[in-house]
């Protein structure tokens, strides 16, 4: 039924400036909230699709379906599998697109709106999350969510997100995002800095207020020089298990050990920083 609708509209939208009807339909479907729109120019550049023809069956028809160029007289048996293949193809293109400059910018907008949900860890204070895959190969692992504050990964709350293939986001995306936008690396303590998050790279004033982020780097590939993150871990809050107010021995011991490991890392990074090696 949906395919019908896509075809009906496809002739009209070929010359259209906006993206394809199939993509709009795909993005608005329930459960696909994590995906962003891949620009049609990117899809139409065959260079960006190198190698995908071996991953996707009926590759050219799937590509035609995504770009609304599918012939009406396509065989019915192919058509029935085409929808699955088109989703796979879109997902794999999506994984490549979101690590481009424009793709990162689009995902950043979604991050600022917390489209990917918020960290379930209480002490992360509802830090917005980013999607991440555990492998770049499709059909292996479902998508996970990365928290930039505790630097850990979580399973999506909802099962309709829990069944999305992680390869459609890839293993690199969140880390590349913070590499390109170091000013958006979340602070380890305090509430989520919403004004700065919303304003993103544009509003200088709100960024000035960010803790230890005084420099106003443009949101470019240049890693900012004005702040360092060597000792941010010391500010991270931890939960301390207690029985009637007393710490639990074995857990307290483990936490002391973990904090000693942290202190070592901080000392090591500070030393590197002193020698200008960071």
């Amino acid at each position: 039924m949906l395919r019908r609708a896509v075809e009906d509209n496809s002739t009209g939208s070929d010359s259209d400036y906006t993206n394809s009807v199939w993509i709009s339909w795909f993005l608005s479907s329930k459960g696909n909230e994590y995906f962003c729109e891949v620009e049609e120019d990117y899809i139409l550049d065959r260079f960006n699709l190198t190698g995908l023809n071996t991953e996707v069956q009926h590759y050219s028809q799937a590509l035609d379906l995504i770009t609304d160029n599918l012939d009406d007289d396509i065989q019915d048996e192919i058509r029935s599998t085409l929808d699955v293949q088109a989703r796979l193809l879109y997902g794999l293109i999506h994984a490549r697109w979101i690590v481009t400059a424009r793709g990162l910018a689009k995902m950043l907008e979604k991050y600022k709106r917390a489209d990917f949900g918020r960290c379930p860890r209480v002490l992360c204070q509802s830090q917005p999350l980013l999607p991440v895959g555990l492998t770049d190969v499709p059909y292996e692992k479902s998508v996970k969510l990365y928290c930039g504050r505790c630097e850990d990964i979580y399973s999506p709350k909802s099962s309709r997100h829990g069944s999305i293939d992680g390869a459609y986001f890839g293993t690199s995306f969140p880390h590349l995002l913070f590499l390109v936008y170091p000013n958006l690396i979340p602070p380890k303590s305090g509430p989520v800095d919403f004004p700065a998050l919303r304003a993103g790279g544009e509003a200088e004033g709100s960024r000035r207020s960010r803790r230890a982020r005084d420099e106003q780097e443009p949101p470019s590939d240049i890693v900012g020089e004005g702040f360092n993150t060597t000792s941010v871990a010391l500010k991270a809050e931890r939960y301390r298990p207690r029985i009637f107010g007393f710490q639990v021995n074995e857990i307290a011991k483990l936490q002391r050990w973990q904090e000693a490991v942290r202190d070592k890392q901080v000392a090591r990074l500070d030393l590197l920083d002193e020698h200008g090696l960071m």
């Binding site: 690199s172 880390h175 702040f227 993150t229």
Partner: peptide, 28 residues
């Protein structure tokens, strides 16, 4: 413990966006 990677390479702790919180999940 989660290890962030970019294009298959571990993100170095020397990077500003490098891992800072792995200690919290580490066990001896």
């Amino acid at each position: 413990v989660y290890q962030p990677k970019i294009y298959g390479f571990k993100v170095s702790e020397r990077a500003k966006c490098g891992p800072r919180m792995q200690w919290m999940r580490l066990r001896p």
